[in-house]
Amino acid sequence: MNLQINHHTIEQTHSLKLAGEVDAYTAPKLKEVLVPLTEKEGQEIIIDLSGIEYMDSTGLGIFVGALKSTKANNSSMKLRGMTERVRRIFEITGLTEVMDIENEVKGEAK
Protein backbone atom coordinates (compact mmCIF):
# COMPACT_ATOMS: atom_id res chain seq x y z
CA MET A 1 0.00 0.00 0.00
CA ASN A 2 1.17 3.49 -0.78
CA LEU A 3 0.79 7.03 0.42
CA GLN A 4 -0.53 9.80 -1.81
CA ILE A 5 0.05 13.39 -0.81
CA ASN A 6 -1.84 16.28 -2.36
CA HIS A 7 -0.33 19.60 -1.54
CA HIS A 8 -1.80 23.09 -2.09
CA THR A 9 -0.30 26.31 -0.88
CA ILE A 10 -2.05 29.65 -0.71
CA GLU A 11 0.24 32.29 0.77
CA GLN A 12 1.14 31.04 4.28
CA THR A 13 -1.47 28.29 4.36
CA HIS A 14 -0.54 24.78 3.30
CA SER A 15 -3.19 22.13 2.81
CA LEU A 16 -2.09 18.53 2.65
CA LYS A 17 -4.51 15.79 1.80
CA LEU A 18 -3.22 12.31 2.53
CA ALA A 19 -4.51 9.00 1.25
CA GLY A 20 -3.32 5.46 1.86
CA GLU A 21 -1.11 4.37 4.73
CA VAL A 22 1.44 6.12 6.90
CA ASP A 23 3.81 3.48 8.18
CA ALA A 24 7.53 2.78 8.43
CA TYR A 25 7.71 2.47 4.63
CA THR A 26 5.81 5.59 3.65
CA ALA A 27 6.71 7.85 6.59
CA PRO A 28 9.92 9.16 4.93
CA LYS A 29 7.81 10.43 2.01
CA LEU A 30 5.51 12.36 4.35
CA LYS A 31 8.46 13.68 6.30
CA GLU A 32 10.05 15.00 3.12
CA VAL A 33 6.95 17.07 2.31
CA LEU A 34 5.85 18.07 5.81
CA VAL A 35 9.03 18.91 7.66
CA PRO A 36 10.23 21.75 5.36
CA LEU A 37 6.82 23.45 5.78
CA THR A 38 7.14 23.34 9.57
CA GLU A 39 10.59 24.85 9.51
CA LYS A 40 9.43 28.21 8.21
CA GLU A 41 8.11 31.01 10.43
CA GLY A 42 4.41 31.77 10.71
CA GLN A 43 2.98 29.01 8.52
CA GLU A 44 -0.41 27.38 8.89
CA ILE A 45 -0.49 23.72 7.99
CA ILE A 46 -3.77 21.85 7.64
CA ILE A 47 -3.63 18.11 7.14
CA ASP A 48 -6.63 16.13 5.99
CA LEU A 49 -6.35 12.51 7.09
CA SER A 50 -9.73 11.26 5.87
CA GLY A 51 -8.07 9.06 3.24
CA ILE A 52 -5.73 7.39 5.71
CA GLU A 53 -6.74 3.82 6.50
CA TYR A 54 -3.75 2.92 8.60
CA MET A 55 -1.10 4.70 10.58
CA ASP A 56 1.54 3.06 12.71
CA SER A 57 3.74 4.50 15.40
CA THR A 58 6.46 5.54 12.98
CA GLY A 59 3.82 7.60 11.15
CA LEU A 60 2.76 9.09 14.45
CA GLY A 61 6.39 10.00 15.07
CA ILE A 62 6.39 12.20 11.96
CA PHE A 63 3.45 14.21 13.35
CA VAL A 64 5.16 14.50 16.73
CA GLY A 65 8.31 15.81 15.05
CA ALA A 66 6.25 18.21 12.93
CA LEU A 67 4.39 19.48 16.00
CA LYS A 68 7.64 20.26 17.83
CA SER A 69 9.03 21.95 14.77
CA THR A 70 5.93 24.14 14.17
CA LYS A 71 6.02 25.25 17.81
CA ALA A 72 9.69 26.14 17.58
CA ASN A 73 8.97 28.24 14.48
CA ASN A 74 5.74 29.98 15.51
CA SER A 75 3.74 28.02 13.00
CA SER A 76 0.66 25.89 13.51
CA MET A 77 -0.51 22.47 12.44
CA LYS A 78 -4.07 21.23 12.41
CA LEU A 79 -5.26 17.69 11.73
CA ARG A 80 -8.72 16.95 10.40
CA GLY A 81 -10.88 14.16 9.08
CA MET A 82 -9.44 11.22 11.04
CA THR A 83 -11.01 7.83 10.68
CA GLU A 84 -11.83 6.02 13.91
CA ARG A 85 -8.84 3.73 13.67
CA VAL A 86 -6.45 6.62 13.24
CA ARG A 87 -8.13 8.66 15.95
CA ARG A 88 -7.77 5.75 18.34
CA ILE A 89 -4.00 5.77 18.15
CA PHE A 90 -3.89 9.54 18.68
CA GLU A 91 -6.11 9.03 21.73
CA ILE A 92 -4.17 6.11 23.23
CA THR A 93 -0.90 7.97 22.90
CA GLY A 94 -2.40 11.07 24.54
CA LEU A 95 -1.48 13.18 21.51
CA THR A 96 -5.06 14.49 21.24
CA GLU A 97 -4.15 16.58 24.31
CA VAL A 98 -1.32 18.44 22.61
CA MET A 99 -2.35 18.52 18.96
CA ASP A 100 -4.94 20.65 17.26
CA ILE A 101 -7.40 18.07 16.01
CA GLU A 102 -10.69 18.97 14.44
CA ASN A 103 -13.43 17.18 16.26
CA GLU A 104 -15.29 15.49 13.47
CA VAL A 105 -14.79 11.75 13.19
CA LYS A 106 -15.33 9.91 9.99
CA GLY A 107 -16.51 6.32 9.85
CA GLU A 108 -14.02 3.48 9.70
CA ALA A 109 -12.30 3.18 6.33
CA LYS A 110 -12.92 -0.32 5.15
Binding site: V64, T93, G94, L95
Partner: peptide
Protein backbone atom coordinates in the same frame (compact mmCIF):
# COMPACT_ATOMS: atom_id res chain seq x y z
CA UNK B 1 -4.25 4.51 31.77
CA UNK B 2 -4.46 7.98 30.32
CA UNK B 3 -1.32 9.98 29.73
CA UNK B 4 0.78 11.38 26.94
CA UNK B 5 3.71 9.44 25.48
CA UNK B 6 7.16 10.11 26.91
CA UNK B 7 9.28 12.67 25.11
CA UNK B 8 6.67 15.06 23.66
CA UNK B 9 5.57 17.48 26.35
Amino acid sequence: AKGIVLGVS
